Amino acid sequence: MSRGVTPYRIEIPDADLADLRERLLRTRWPEAETVDDWSQGVPLAYLRELCDYWAERYDWRATEARLNALPQCRIEIDGLGIHVLHARSPHPDALPLVLTHGWPGSIVEFLKVIGPLTDPAAHGGDRADAFHVVCPSLPGYGFSDKPGRTGWGVQRIAAGWAELMARLGYSRYGAQGGDWGTSITTSLGQQDPEHLAGIHLNPPIAAPDPDTLGDLTDAERETLAALELAQQWEDGYSMQQATRPQTLGYGLVDSPAGLCGWIVEKFRAWSDCDGHPENVFTRDEMLDNVTLYWLTGTAASSARLYWESFRQVQSWFSESTSDTVDVPTGCSVFPKDLPRPSRRWAEKRYTDIRYWNEPPKGGHFAAFERPDIFVDEVRAFFRLVR
């Protein structure tokens, strides 16, 4: 390692795991919902069952071992320690690729795709598609430091990623992102075009083009209707995190059951799961992610990214031609993700779309839900720009 890059290994104290179990067993539960579906949130019976599994059968040490099997480091960027999974391909001519997660995701979203991306030949692919994978935890997330002052928004993180890739010795690289990763990767495309081979997004940030509103396609009408429904019934979490993340954090950092409900609701609402999260995620997979938030105490610090940048990103979704991105761009729009912009809307911002696809399956957590499709999408785009 060089240039301030320090090797890192995850070692959670036994006492922290014992404390988690004790808190789960002492949860003070509310009464059951007054409906027979998820319309008031996660049903009591399901969350109690999931938290009982978490307390009695879930094995964090297995996940810790999976993470520690990958090379990790911490590197100081702009005064903040950033935790990074850095898995180099066995093929020296591989393209460096920075993968950026969002909320309520984490680096565990990518555990099923790192192997196929770094060593495609070992997973039935072509070695020509190999990547050196760089997977950082966002500031305030996972094992990265929590910002102690304001200012760590989307643009600053993107600038940090450009420095990160340079410090790791990569003069030309690709970038991929979803959720907050979409915004950060878009900003990276604006800030560091001379070093980027291209960016891949799921989905792109694109507002409805006013010029098309009189001639909408059926898919565009469905997107607008889904956005309106989400504004009425699904967006409360974002307004709370964008306006009062500190107040919210007291409960989520103190109660593992509360944190579990807050995150698992999104696994159900945003995935292509046909109404139940366990149709696409195992319990262990969901709890891997929730436990990472719990053990690192990052419910409040992660939510602050909404306070920093949510209004700006909202403006990107309402202004179709501002802040154009001119680097080669690939877009994968999964059927259960939201938003689901059309290509003609996206072309107003991304001026060099080289790849566009709408896969038949998948939702917001593409790499986590459908790792095979995700890998195929990433490979397909970057073949065009290597």
Rank of each mutant, 00 (worst) to 15 (best):
G115V: 03
D337I: 01
T324C: 09
N68P: 00
I77Y: 07
C273Q: 08
S302P: 07
A158N: 13
V42I: 14
D326L: 05
I77E: 04
R88I: 03
S271P: 05
S255E: 11
S271Q: 06
L252I: 08
Q232P: 00
A300Q: 11
T27D: 06
A380N: 14
W103T: 04
W262Q: 05
S309F: 05
A69N: 06
G249M: 07
D145G: 08
E11W: 02
D235N: 08
E11C: 04
Q241I: 02
G362E: 14
Q155S: 15
R167M: 07
F131S: 02
R304K: 15
I75T: 10
P203R: 09
S318E: 03
D272R: 11
F317C: 05
D372H: 15
L24Y: 06
H132V: 04
H83A: 05
A158W: 10
I12Q: 12
L85G: 09
L117T: 10
D215I: 00
R61P: 03
F281V: 12
T243H: 00
E33K: 13
P71D: 05
D323P: 00
V325C: 13
R167L: 10
K112N: 14
C331E: 04
Q190A: 13
G142H: 11
T150P: 08
D274V: 03
D288V: 10
R354G: 15
Y170V: 03
G140Y: 14
I10E: 01
D211N: 10
H276S: 13
Q72Y: 07
R57I: 00
H276D: 15
T243E: 00
M239Q: 01
P341D: 11
W38H: 08
K266A: 10
A303G: 07
W29V: 09
L188I: 12
V108S: 10
D59G: 02
R9F: 03
S2R: 15
R344G: 01
D209W: 01
V134D: 09
F131D: 03
V84A: 12
L138P: 11
L24R: 01
Q232A: 14
S271T: 08
V253T: 15
R61T: 09
L168W: 04
Q232G: 02
E369Y: 14
E194P: 00
R340P: 03
A300K: 06
W60D: 07
A94G: 03
R57P: 00
E358S: 13
L384S: 11
F381K: 10
Q241A: 14
H200R: 08
L111V: 12
V133W: 02
E31V: 09
F381M: 13
R268T: 09
T282D: 06
W307M: 06
A32M: 04
